[in-house]
Amino acid sequence: MPSKSLAALERQVGRTVTTVEDLVVELGKVEEFARAIKDDNPVFRDEESAREQGYETVLAPLTFTRTAYFPRYRPDGVGLNHGFDLGFDQSRVVHGEQEYVYKQPIHVGDVISGETTLIDVYERTGSRGGTMTFAVFETVYRNADGEHVLTERLTRIELAGDGDGDD
């Protein structure tokens, strides 16, 4: 179980932190990301191909905002935990779910910022007993004009530890 009580985690629900600043969507980074996910679509590589497919310019892949974790885009003190101290044992944390709600595509040249809210925490009993703790973070991303481009929901799970079955 986390080093903090469920009640202490619940008190953080609703808190919002600026987690992403000045994420400049660069052509080279978009191409590198597309290559890493093995997506061959030229829409991620050159403007002419993007126009042929009916887009203004090169677009970012649907999961591109994963790059928002690079330290360059993180305000001081935010790090990987979105600025929340949940007391999770990092060696037992897994990524359970991810959800995106798209308002408009992200283009090369966009400058993106993000604010993250802890929207839910809850416990469940694991399949082999013990307590699993879930935390759901919602990040709203906006472009430089303040337009909402996408919302991302990330569920992190602290799996039951060896000792938790006896709790």
Partner: peptide, 25 residues
């Protein structure tokens, strides 16, 4: 792996037409 799935849906429907993408690992 979510990136591989994103590839399937963006090729299928078009990047600008996808409204929601939900993934459970």
């Amino acid at each position: 792996t979510a990136g591989f799935a994103s590839h399937a849906i963006s090729d299928w429907f078009g990047l600008d037409r996808i409204e929601r993408f939900t993934i459970r690992f």
